[in-house]
Design a binder for these strands. Structure first.
Lengths: 128, 128
DNA sequence: CCTTCATGTTTACATCCGTAGTCGATTACG
DNA sequence: CGTAATCGACTACGGATGTAAACATGAAGG
């Protein structure tokens, strides 16, 4: 029973920063990833390399040899990651009810007018 | 500059299970908390005691002496915890846009009809 | 009173995470 | 051809987390 499916392992916060770079553009070399991510987080190249390794181990990223080095690409889509994390939150905090999450955000005044308008438009669209 | 405000520290997943017990009913003794959470998670009393200690250290839980033992109560409201976690998710994944989260859930078909109805009703209420 | 039970405190330990240095091999440049 | 730069792999290490046992101390019961 080989575990060939991507991303059973959890992606940590620091790792996500690396994924974002790859989601934005890929494939990238380790250096390119570092250029994209390291400055904003104050990381050294070594840190980025470690995170890339861990992501490869977690099968969240795959490598293609390119001469001496590797080109890195995401193996999990950002959409799937976002879905997983969102569902986890909804389950953990709102008993699986997405509406519960929205009620909560509304109550916490965490919804801007813009949010409300967009959600309303979305709803209309879905109803169609 | 004393840090007297509750919960700057992050509450972990295991710790949240303990918080849930206290949010459901409080104050509770360590034993009562254990009775409430240990079976479902397969924990021993010792584990619950450790988690309670850490929560006290994190100022997420406060104690009141009750003779020989302590009574534990939450110091952070569940609502605030939920708000914090929700905002963190929205920031980390949807650039701070709650509508983005909503659009995403819709696209992932993670919204049931019930969710949609409830959200619609919510919106109507907010528009009032 | 002395033993036992209950309960909080301390210690333990494996794993994960954040952050990074070092090593070994390979490539490229002089 | 030899030396320097490059790059992935391995090692490191402190803190957080999950999980729990050992210990100390006070209370309760015989």
């Amino acid at each position: 029973m080989a575990d060939d499916s991507p991303q059973n392992e959890r992606i940590s916060e620091a790792e996500q920063a690396v994924m974002e770079a790859l989601w934005a553009r890929s494939p990238l070399t380790a250096n390119e990833v570092a250029d994209a991510v390291a400055p904003a987080r104050g990381w050294t190249l070594a840190t980025v390399k470690t995170l890339l390794s861990r992501l490869v181990a977690k099968q969240a990223v795959e490598t293609a040899p390119d001469g001496k080095r590797f080109l890195y690409s995401p193996r999990v889509a950002r959409v799937d990651f976002a879905t997983g994390e969102s569902k986890r939150l909804v389950d953990r905090l709102f008993g699986g009810s997405a509406a519960g999450l929205f009620a909560h955000l509304a109550e916490a005044e965490a919804l801007t007018d813009k949010d409300l308008n967009q959600i309303e438009a979305l709803l209309k669209e879905l109803r169609k």
